[in-house]
Design a protein around this nucleic acid. Structure first.
Lengths: 73, 73
DNA sequence: CTGTGATGTTAATAATATTTGACATGGAAA
DNA sequence: TTTCCATGTCAAATATTATTAACATCACAG
C-alpha cells in the first residue's frame, strides 16, 4: 500500500445492507470496474466526486453517509 | 468546453457568504492553487473527494451543501 | 474432490486532476 | 493616468486516479 487516502467510507456495510450486493454488481451499477470498487472500498485512493455521487445514489443516501473525512486537529 | 463536469457547486455563493473570501484565499485554506479553485468553481472539472471535503470544511457545511449531482432521469 | 462465485492482488496503461507560469481584463483606488 | 487586486485564460508538465487483464485465495455447493 503506497499511500492510503485519508477519506474512509462505509461502502461495505451499505452493500450488505442492500441485499448482499456484490462488488461486481455495484461496479456494474455505477459503471466502473470491479477493481475500482475494491480499491475505493479499501481506501487505497479516494474516487472522483462523480463516482462518489454515483455510489451514494445507488444506496439512496447522501454523500456524507458514504464517505467520512477527519476533522481538523 | 472540452468536457464540463456534471457536478455543479455553490462555491461562489459560499465565498461571498463568508466575508468576501477571495479565490486565492480559499485556495490557500485548502492547499491548492488559485487556478484549481477557478476551474472547480466554474465546473470545468470535478475535484477529488479530498479537495471537496476540504472545501466543505472551510465553509463549515456538508458536502451536499457545496456540490450537487443531477438525479437519475 | 471438483467447480464456481466472491474477493483480493499486482502491474501496466489510460484518463483526469492539479500545478506552474505567463499573460489579459475590469474595477477601484491613489 | 497609473497602480493594485480579483478574476480569468491558456498551454505544458506532473501527480493522482481509473481501467484492464491475469492470476490467487477462500468458502461452499454439488
Amino acid at each position: 500500500m503506497v499511500k492510503p487516502t485519508s477519506v474512509s467510507n462505509t461502502i461495505r456495510s451499505l452493500r450488505f445492507a442492500n441485499g448482499e450486493m456484490t462488488q461486481a454488481a455495484l461496479a456494474d451499477r455505477i459503471g466502473v470496474t470491479r477493481q475500482t470498487v475494491i480499491a475505493i472500498e479499501q481506501g487505497r485512493y479516494s474516487p472522483s466526486l462523480e463516482v462518489a455521487f454515483q455510489i451514494a445514489q445507488v444506496f439512496k443516501v447522501s454523500l456524507d453517509d458514504v464517505f467520512q473525512y477527519p476533522d481538523l486537529p
